[in-house]
Nucleic acid binder design. Structure first.
Length: 500
RNA sequence: GGCCCGGUGGUCAAGCGGCUAAGACACCGCCCUUUCACGGCGGUAACACGGGUUCGAUUCCCGUCCGGGUCACCA
């Protein structure tokens, strides 16, 4: 076979030079792992911090795992998280295509180049061929044998399926990682790695190296699970004579298994939440991004104690030196804390907009003002999904026991509560102005007149109005939203209950 | 199991030879208060272990233990 060196020269000529270029290269699985999101974020931040370019590349070389619309999930997730890319499948760029299956010819040519150089070889693997139908590619004991160039060409010409493997030389390989430092491994640990699969598509490792090179990637950011395959990359770069990029491996995101208590890598397969799951549970993207940024990275210097960051602040503060080597555990409690803060940081209007759909899950009665309910909720929920249960009493007064009327701190019991409700009913009934201030003023005035604590008067009223020991907002707020008629009706029910 | 990488409170973490070892979440008190929250104040809690090196180790080196990752025609 003839190698057209002019083609390679042309490819090399297209590679952008100068400036930082990073890439996020997910495979389209249909959802975004928390770990992946964090890797994407760090990758983005490294590029933006340096004023460089951030590239999105789709790694879809695994035909068996293709998921429909999965690429759209990636786009949507990254946009919602504020990770905008400068080059990618949809926006194009100087070194496209940005979808690996559309680059299959490139990989094949580069693999053949290595064969030509004597650094890789064809092999024909009967066992693999027979296993192809079942889709189960078991590792053969003696999978391949190197053939002479003539034999190989004859086989290829005869249409036999084949793979191309790289010859791994003897010795040791050392590579440098920006967070882990120098790592050396014995090449004996490495197998002759497959570059091109029998379906003509490249393996992940090979496609990565070829693409990162051709796309001019300067910083290869990825999860630490790839740390042990990194030496293979160097061997590939060396075989081609290419410049080795800066590696930035990020430790894994772990999770404490709620069932077993064991710590393990976070994964969708074990039922751990993905980004999409978190959003569905009522977490704000910015809260997730902020939290995840701090999971495995910490700011240095005079902002070492800062924990809330806007994206611009992250861009300014992010540095590779702050990335930690040890794996960190995803803590839902702390995410809750971040989310609660972001929720409170919203303007009342923004919060109401976010909250309304959740409020309306249990509050179907349009007479009850969603914005007013939202106002009570803003300081009281960590996740939007906490909302429906908290406001269910508006539509339907729960069945509740008379014991709820007894509260030590408010100095109430059944008798006291009944008396308070009896005193309160005519006062509220006579109120023309059903506003917050008006109701509050009337109640406080009555408490003073009766010589009781505000709480002693308010507690029974709130229980009668809501039928729950804990509610968002107090008696005044709830009555105000319920409206005068409904409030008085519920008070009647309460008094009946207390009369036994 | 081989190889690789880690190890500061329950969790996230600062620290980068000399500190009463930060801060945050969670937890526990107190204050505020119309319940609960929010907010404010305070508290409990950590350098895995054993050897070195050093005047001095959480910090450097070695071993042990523990944890994780990886050993695919998956990424």
């Amino acid at each position: 076979m003839a190698i057209d060196m002019k083609w390679f020269d042309e490819m090399e000529g297209r590679i952008p030079r100068g400036g930082v270029r990073t890439r996020f290269a997910p495979s389209p699985t249909g959802y975004m792992h928390v770990g992946n999101l964090r890797t994407a974020l760090y990758t983005y931040l490294i590029a933006r911090h340096a004023g460089g370019r951030f590239i999105l590349r789709i790694e879809d070389t695994d035909q068996g795992r293709l998921v429909e619309d999965a690429v759209d999930v990636i786009y949507a997730t990254m946009r919602r998280c504020g990770l905008t890319w400068d080059e990618g499948p949809d926006v194009g760029g100087p070194v496209g295509s940005y979808i690996q299956t559309e680059r299959r010819d490139f990989y094949k040519k580069y693999a053949e180049l290595l064969v030509e150089k004597g650094l890789a070889y064809y092999c024909f693997c009967d066992k693999a061929e027979s296993a192809e139908d079942s889709g189960n590619f078991e590792r053969a004991e003696d999978p391949c044998r190197a053939l002479s160039k003539e034999e190989a060409e004859a086989n290829v010409a005869a249409g036999r399926s084949y793979v191309i493997r790289q010859r791994i030389p003897e010795g040791t390989t050392t590579f440098h990682d920006a967070v882990y430092g120098d790592i050396t491994v014995d090449n004996a640990e490495l197998d002759d790695q497959i570059l091109l699969k029998s379906d003509g598509l490249p393996t992940y490792n090979f496609a990565n190296v070829v693409d990162d090179h051709l796309m001019g990637i300067t910083h290869v950011v990825r999860g630490a699970e790839y740390l042990s395959s990194a030496p293979k990359y160097n061997l590939l770069y060396e075989a081609f004579g290419w410049e080795i990029p800066t590696y930035v491996h990020c430790s894994s995101v772990m999770i404490n298994d709620p069932e077993t208590g064991a710590v393990r890598k976070m994964s969708k397969r074990h039922g751990d939440p993905s980004y999409e799951d978190l959003v569905a549970q009522g977490y704000l993207s910015h809260a997730v991004v902020n939290y995840v940024a701090l999971l495995g990275w910490a700011p240095h210097g005079d902002i070492a104690e800062q924990e809330f960051f806007t994206m611009d602040e992250l861009i300014a503060a992010f540095d590779i030196a702050g990335i930690s080597k040890s794996p960190s555990a995803f803590d839902m409690e702390k995410l809750n804390y971040f989310n609660a803060n972001y929720l409170r940081g919203l303007s009342p209007e923004e919060f109401a907009r976010e909250a309304e759909p959740w409020i309306r899950r249990t509050v179907k009665n349009e007479a009850y003002d969603a914005a007013a309910i939202a106002a009570l909720l803003q300081a009281r929920c960590e996740r939007l999904s906490d909302i429906p249960e908290k406001v269910d009493f508006f539509d339907a007064l729960p069945e509740y026991g008379a014991d709820l009327y007894t509260n030590k701190k408010s100095k109430t019991n059944s008798e006291v509560s009944l008396e308070m409700l009896k005193q309160t009913a005519p006062v509220l009934s006579g109120l023309d102005d059903w506003s917050q201030d008006s109701i509050h003023g009337a109640l406080v005035g009555l408490a003073e007149k009766l010589g009781v604590k505000n709480a002693t008067l308010m507690w029974p009223l709130r229980i009668a109005a809501a039928g729950k020991a804990v509610t968002p907002g107090g008696a005044v707020e709830i009555c105000r939203i319920l409206g005068k008629d409904e409030t008085l009706r519920r008070m009647e029910l309460g008094m009946e209950k207390l009369n036994g």
